[in-house]
Design a protein around this nucleic acid. Structure first.
Lengths: 351, 351
DNA sequence: TACTTTTGTGGGAACGCTCCCACGACACTA
DNA sequence: TAGTGTCGTGGGAGCGTTCCCACAAAAGTA
């Protein structure tokens, strides 16, 4: 069953059927409903490949998880991002293709760029959590292929992105720790070349400086955004006896909490710990984790919207959109247990 | 740049270039290398849509997350499954499309089935964690569209699947609890209509029966595969004072552990708790969680392989493949803390 | 009335491939 | 020597759309 056949059955031309299928208003009501009947009766559906070939649009968007972050892909951040992105795609009648590096062959940019992009497989692409020196970005910029970053890139002002203000959020969280009176505040960062890490570090430094404190290089350690990294980084920090630790992701914070438990150190009585992300498990950790809640699925949804807009109007100026974060205060920072129902029984998120 | 143009530049015909691109061996070495030079020089890449249209193959596979499970999509199970599936796709030079229900419009089967499948968008599909009464399954069976389940379906022997033996794994884990001498063993199940839940329940019952015990209906509660569900289910079980609880997923087990902490009950001294999945956080929970480790990314990888095989040879009989699980014993079941380095510092997985 | 414009419809020409058949050149067999 | 394969190559015919232009009929304008 194809256009031509529907046309024959409805007694009209191929063009008219095409117009009906594509909601072109220049079809009389009589003809339109006659064609629609035939389409429904025979369960006709236009062939995607033929459409793409003729229209030079695939209605497929890519979601690229770069090699550097695919190792921490099981972090709850990614499923929520994917969910938001898929939702936005669904409502715009687009599809989402997963692009990630296998690891065994590190030619992402090759396989990906060459086959998928140059082969016109995609109309556009989302790139997640990019690193500062991603070679892909340069290649894409040169090819004027539409793409949007989830997470800003400091070097290229001409690239659209959707992000949270990592710097401001980190600053407010560290300021909260300072408000408790802590002075020796350490930080555990994620991968050094990731922009989110750099921005969160910037916020940490700013908060200290505004309190008249100098950041101490010994109080900075790096994990790799996973629990094990957080655990080891915390172990490195222990000799310097910080009074509080700002950890740049919740998953690392859980590792840090474990390291402190293993060392017999009380949280928050001896060391306060705060995270970043606002993943669900933070409500059940021991103690419950104070953190920055990011609107993760909104990030994905919004990024798709910006991308679709860039595809529609290629000449528009780049969009730089920051979504709001939320300070989620629980017990790990030293705040008292709030009263009310338990988070797993009900709701207890701070405003 | 297209086939025709490459052909012109290389001084051969379109057909010959096509043969070179598709690794057809019936091309002389001289011509082959001449064509390859031109292709490289001009960075030619075949157009995906044109290929699909002519060959009736898209080289795209779908990964369907049904509505029922998309709510627990942030469970670490899914990222690992996706990772395995994408890896297998990459090495076979296929792409993976994410298909999930938005929730706001519950016409998955409509949007999905009609547009994506009937529109020949996909060569095949993976369906994850299906429920017993999934209407999609019936529809697909009737259409002889290639698909493979991740997680068996008890009703349809003619559908290929890749799964773990949930029943046997659950049975061995509950048998381990019985080996501790516990008799009042409760269970927290996932969504009732999910096949994994049913199978794990079956294993639980069998283990009890083999020990000469009758399962007590009061000792069964259901969560929804997330932490909150586990928390509430545990609360329901508390009045009946079980000595041990088999929880059908790790995430629910973390919720159950929290409920027990909130109730001031010691794990494993007063109640033993075991999970199912083997997610990384189990090593850092308080206490570390004994569980069944599933080879999750292998499940995704293997399912893609089976699917590709089904696409190649549509007449082959259905494949029913079970991957092995592993009993991961930590402290929550009552076993003594094993010596050796901490899991976050190194490795401590039981054989 | 004669003209322009709008509206609805039809058909040709791509879009860039794959697949099938044809055909000459050469090697092998009888 | 003639017949039969195999090999390498070329070209035509789709694949199922969209897009553009043509064109008749109806509606609006002078």
């Amino acid at each position: 069953m194809n256009l031509e056949e529907v046309a024959r059955l409805a007694g009209v031309s191929r063009s008219t059927v095409s117009r009906v299928v594509n909601d072109d208003r220049r079809v009389s009501d009589t003809v339109r409903s006659r064609v629609q009947d035939i389409i429904r009766q025979h369960d006709y559906h236009p062939n995607a490949a033929a459409r793409s070939l003729a229209s030079r649009r695939t209605r497929i968007l890519g979601l690229l998880i770069p090699e550097a972050v695919s190792a921490v892909f099981s972090d709850p951040f990614f499923p929520r991002l994917i969910q938001g992105a898929v939702e936005a795609c669904n409502s715009a009648d687009y599809n989402l293709l997963m692009l990630m590096d296998s690891g065994n062959e590190s030619d992402v940019s090759d396989r990906l760029y060459r086959r998928v992009i140059r082969g016109h497989h995609l109309d556009g692409m989302l790139i997640v959590s990019s690193v500062v020196d991603d070679p892909m970005i340069k290649q894409l910029l040169a090819s004027d292929f539409p793409f949007v970053l989830v997470g800003r890139h400091p070097r290229y002002q001409e690239i659209s992105f959707v992000d949270v203000d990592n710097r401001a959020a980190a600053q407010s969280l560290v300021a909260h720790l300072l408000g408790h009176g802590y002075e020796q505040i350490a930080m555990i960062g994620g991968m050094r070349n990731m922009i989110a890490t750099i921005d969160r570090y910037g916020g940490y430094v700013t908060a200290l400086q505004e309190a008249g404190l100098m950041p101490d290089p010994q109080l900075i350690a790096y994990g790799d955004f996973d629990e094990q990294g957080g655990y080891r980084a915390m172990q490195q920090l222990l000799p310097y006896q910080p009074r509080a630790v700002f950890v740049a992701s919740d998953m690392m914070a859980f590792g840090a909490l474990q390291a402190l438990r293993d060392a017999g150190i009380q949280v928050p009585e001896e060391i306060a710990v705060v995270g970043f992300d606002g993943v669900a498990q933070g409500a059940v950790s021991q103690p419950p984790l104070s953190t920055i809640s990011q609107p993760i699925s909104d990030l994905g949804r919004e990024a798709i919207r910006v991308l679709l807009d860039a595809i529609e109007r290629p000449d528009r100026s780049p969009v730089h959109r920051f979504l709001p974060t939320q300070l989620t205060i629980r017990r790990s920072c030293g705040c008292p247990e709030t009263s009310g129902p338990h988070p797993l029984g009900g709701d207890r998120r701070a405003p």
